Computed example of a mutant assay.
Amino acid sequence: MQIAEDRESWTRVIYPRLAVDASDEFRFRRESSAPSGLIDWRSGERLIESARRTLLAGAKFFLGPGRHFVNRHGRFASRYLDEVLMGQTAPGSYIVTAYAPPHAGISLSASGGDMSSLPDVGVAHAREVSQAVVRAVEATAEAVEHYRTSGSLSGFEAGVPRGISYEMTQALLGIAANSDGADITVEWDSSSSESIPESTHFEFRGSDAEPLSKAAVRLAEDRSSRMVTMIGRVHLLAKKDVGSPGVFGVEALTSGPARKVRVRLADEEDYHEAIRAHEEDLALQVSGKLEKEGNLSWLYNATVIRTMGHVDEYQRPRSVRNVSAGQIDLFDNGASQLPEQSPDPSRGNQ
């Protein structure tokens, strides 16, 4: 009788847990001004994307820490994600639920396949990977808290061995940015006889976007080369090769060393953000190694830090340069114009 009277609870909470095998549960919640359980479409898309990136970043950390994984460990992380189910939003604000089966085997090799009949050699259990996700989120949340009290990013640098990475800071940035509050809750399935970890809960504020953004820039830096960060409008998208990160053009909206650049991404995941920025006329913050090639300026090994506000909120800077007679202005505005043409495939991934 109680279940019949509470159909909402049955369809959203009880039935999904009965319909799937044993599973550890991740809940990604974001406060919304819409009615309970609803969210504006774009924010909902970003929350799902950020939840996906959180799981991928933690899975990459399972194989070893890194400041910036780029595509490293990407196939393993994707195999872990293939074992995860997505549930409906729960009542309240807006909640995306991920169900990760604790006993699923994730191959450590690229061959993949059915892991159910294989010995543990060369196979990771999904719960171990899920625990790595939680450790990485925990370390990042602690670094955010340290920034709140000290204003220092040192906690992010120190936390890299514990799972903090560019990928994780960017994933959590997508959850926290422009929110009225967000959190991640993890509950572990208790059906197995093994010891069960304690449930965990992490909270984030909209103001946490600032340290997460700054940390993402720092963690993405290649200290062996000249890295620059710029904010601009995406005006060209090109992806010739299947599975390649893609290339796009950015026209600067704030002062910087170049007015237009071509951006060659380090990670194909970032290409989706560039597409969204282009479709919604949003400014994009990107970081990469700046190089000049003929009349073109390039950002190589580049990363998308985050999408900003609408491009109309930014005024294009007036270029003021002090170039002495006989000197060459390396980043002359006229020379750095980005032609509307496909990138040169011979460049390859840098």
Rank of each mutant, 00 (worst) to 15 (best):
S297C: 05
P211M: 02
A182G: 08
S50E: 02
D222F: 13
R318S: 07
I48C: 02
L153H: 02
M1V: 08
L237C: 08
S116H: 08
M230Y: 11
L237E: 07
A258L: 05
A325D: 07
H310S: 09
A274I: 10
A4E: 10
V134I: 10
S9E: 11
R264F: 03
L47H: 09
T149M: 06
E45Q: 15
S117A: 12
G92C: 06
S195F: 07
D344H: 07
M227W: 04
S207C: 05
T11G: 10
R318I: 14
P257C: 03
E203W: 04
P211E: 01
A158C: 05
H68M: 03
I14W: 05
D312N: 02
F69E: 06
A98V: 07
A171Q: 13
L55K: 02
R347D: 04
M230T: 15
S213I: 11
P119A: 01
Q341R: 13
H68P: 01
E313W: 08
G232R: 04
D267W: 02
G326M: 07
S213E: 14
V121L: 12
G181M: 01
S324K: 11
W10G: 01
R52W: 03
R79S: 08
S150T: 15
M168H: 06
S9L: 14
R79C: 00
A139R: 12
D183N: 14
G288V: 01
L18V: 07
A283D: 02
S190T: 12
L330T: 12
A19K: 06
H68I: 00
G309Y: 00
F28S: 12
G249C: 07
K240I: 08
S255F: 01
D120K: 02
E25Q: 12
A216V: 06
W188P: 11
S207Y: 11
E198L: 13
R148T: 09
D332G: 09
R29E: 15
V70R: 14
E49C: 02
E83T: 15
I305E: 07
I3A: 13
S111R: 14
L55T: 04
P197T: 13
E142K: 14
S255D: 06
A158H: 10
A215G: 02
L219Y: 09
E8G: 11
R205D: 14
P211H: 05
A51K: 12
R75I: 10
P16G: 11
A100D: 13
G243K: 10
S346Q: 05
D312S: 07
D344N: 15
I14H: 12
L56W: 08
I14A: 15
A77V: 05
I328D: 06
A238P: 04
A100T: 13
R321K: 13
W41Y: 09
E194K: 15
V70S: 14
L338W: 00
I328R: 09
S117M: 11
T185N: 12
G113W: 07
G44Y: 06
R347E: 03
